[in-house]
Nucleic acid binder design. Structure first.
Lengths: 343, 343
DNA sequence: CGCTAGGATTGGAACGATCAAGTGGTCCGG
DNA sequence: CCGGACCACTTGATCGTTCCAATCCTAGCG
């Protein structure tokens, strides 16, 4: 592979064709439809390609085939709830998964006040082949918009508001995660397990809560009076809510997010109660904060790597026009147990 | 702005030209060199552009102008030290800054064992105009490689190993950050301020340490015997190191990272010492973990938004071929004071 | 030996934009 | 009344690839 001096232009199909003594089209076929070439020709062309260090020009290919091998993802500023903590892991997994089929991720932004901003321009300029939409939980309008627009996309997040929406989605089963977390707390011997989540309006929180409730009821417990909901993802509000529940006799906490779980840990610290030993706590997200919190916050870990892989696989099916039997895939998170819930 | 039925093709220059009764080139000029058109023609063309919802095809433009308006950034898996905590903020700021000049960020990945993997392909296929390289602190080979290759790039991180490297870079002045942090601890009344950092091999850590040292010496303190270095970014190792320093009489800690600072908080909790009141602690990164740690970890906050803006500005200058006077820009971080260092 | 089927290979056109070199018209000094 | 400068706009070529419709070659058959 020769890199060539900086000034000279990169080799093109014609360059390679001339050097190999074949036509442009044959070189193109060597890359895209090798089975059309006679083995010896193929070998010869490939040798020249390697020698010259030829790589097809993406722009030309994109222009001709009307496909960019780019997937768009809008990144919104901080200010969202929890989720951002796993964004890194998710992005990396997504990029990795896409690389396997020579696709790349294009990040764009938009006016925070307009959730649709940015999509239209990329579509019209044929800059991306499809989108990954990540924040459907609040019933945001991106998915319906893209669907009506005829644009390929997949979402990370189920269509809460539209139960029979027929687009491809992947989501994390928060209910299953909290069911497991709650059963774990029960197994360790806690019986007064409180729920600490966000406002009733948060689908995410209510979904997770349903897992707590089902596990609790399954063990003969009573969810009434053991539910605390706070407005924002705020440690201090969580700490106060925890105090109230502790006063009311709670011996463990299942939380909608790590921030809340850490708020509980703060309350315990103020009372001199030992996390894990005296009171069990489990959060959700497995953020760095959960790992570093003293003495380690058990947490439901969203399998974002699997989500990414599944999303990419769905994208390919959508782009290929394959009919997808099941529209959605629900992935079960795992539980990372730390000292906040072990005795 | 009409979106048009999903099946019909997007309007092109010719479409618009025909509708406006002018030539392709005139429409092109209306977008790229509006000052060449007569005001009335310009208005008419613009009206048609809006009406048809025309957006230039990126592939065609890219092919002709040899410029993609995409900037590449390789995202590496987790496993790096600290830094990742601010990655979200940084990425978002970068995307925002690039959007202002209609540029987008393209994420790619590569074999973790080969720091150069991925760059070459994108260059050869003319997929990106330039790169942002983020992990130069370890003396990684990307920058020299790209420079020799004649590829435009900027780095987030100064050229530690190559003091007179002449590429464009931006970095955060860790020494200044720790100088301020240490002076703050002194001002609050601590005089036995220990340094807790990573191994001597970490440039990042040693740079920050120099800020602690200069502030300490400036106040008549003695850095000898007050320095602890641990091998990894590990809470538990930090906790143990903190115990040792507390035994040796330390009353405050300046740390190379938040993880270390949180380790100190753990040690204090184990001894029943009150953070801020009895012992002061300051971390670095202002990660979510620092915000949530009990009772709030003061931290040096890297101005990644400014870094992103400056990087983008440098990219433009590099791409325009402008001679850049100063190769590098050093940005001063701010100090976020929380209860771990207030009395 | 001519003819044909089929695979291997080729050449021209097209994708949609910009570049470079025009075109015709108007204005103005000489 | 001519020639050149300038303005506003147009035309043809081009970027590098893939699509499409040939064309060439080879082997097999009658």
């Amino acid at each position: 592979m020769a890199t060539g001096p900086a000034g000279s232009r990169a080799p093109t199909l014609s360059t390679v064709a001339a050097a190999a003594g074949v036509s442009r089209q044959t070189v193109s076929n060597a890359l895209n439809n090798p089975e059309l070439l006679r083995p010896d020709t193929l070998a010869r062309v490939r040798a020249v390609i390697d020698e010259l260090g030829y790589t097809p020009n993406r722009a030309a290919r994109q222009l001709r085939t009307r496909t960019s091998r780019l997937i768009g993802l809008r990144v919104d500023g901080p200010g969202d709830t929890a989720d951002n903590a796993s964004m890194d892991r998710f992005l990396h997994a997504l990029v990795e998964a896409m690389a396997r089929t020579d696709h790349h991720l294009l990040l764009f932004s938009g006016d925070p006040r307009d959730p649709l901003d940015g999509y239209e321009d990329l579509l019209r300029s044929t800059a991306v082949d499809a989108f990954v939409v990540t924040d459907t939980y609040a019933g945001t309008p991106q998915a319906p918009f893209l669907q009506e627009r005829g644009a390929p996309f997949v979402t990370f997040g189920r269509p809460w508001e539209l139960p029979d929406a027929d687009w491809a989605w992947v989501d994390i089963d928060g209910a299953a995660g909290l069911h497991a977390a709650t059963e774990h707390l029960l197994a360790v011997g806690h019986d007064q397990i409180a729920w600490l989540g966000w406002d009733r309006g948060s689908r995410l929180s209510e979904d997770r809560r349903s897992g707590w409730e089902s596990a609790l009821v399954g063990a003969g417990g009573d969810p009434e009076g053991r539910t605390a909901r706070i407005g924002a993802d705020d440690v201090d509000a969580a700490r106060r809510a925890a105090h109230a529940q502790l006063d009311a006799g709670a011996t463990a906490f299942a939380c909608a997010g790590d921030t809340l779980g850490i708020g509980v840990l703060h309350a315990l610290a103020e009372r001199g109660l030992r996390p894990g030993v005296d009171v069990g706590v489990v959060g959700f997200e497995d953020s760095l904060a959960a790992q570093l919190a003293w003495p380690g916050l058990s947490s439901v870990r969203p399998p974002v790597e699997d989500v990414a892989a599944e999303l990419v696989s769905l994208i390919h099916r959508v782009l290929a026009g394959d009919p997808l039997g099941e529209r959605g895939t629900m992935l079960t998170p795992s539980l990372v147990i730390r000292r906040s819930s072990s005795r």
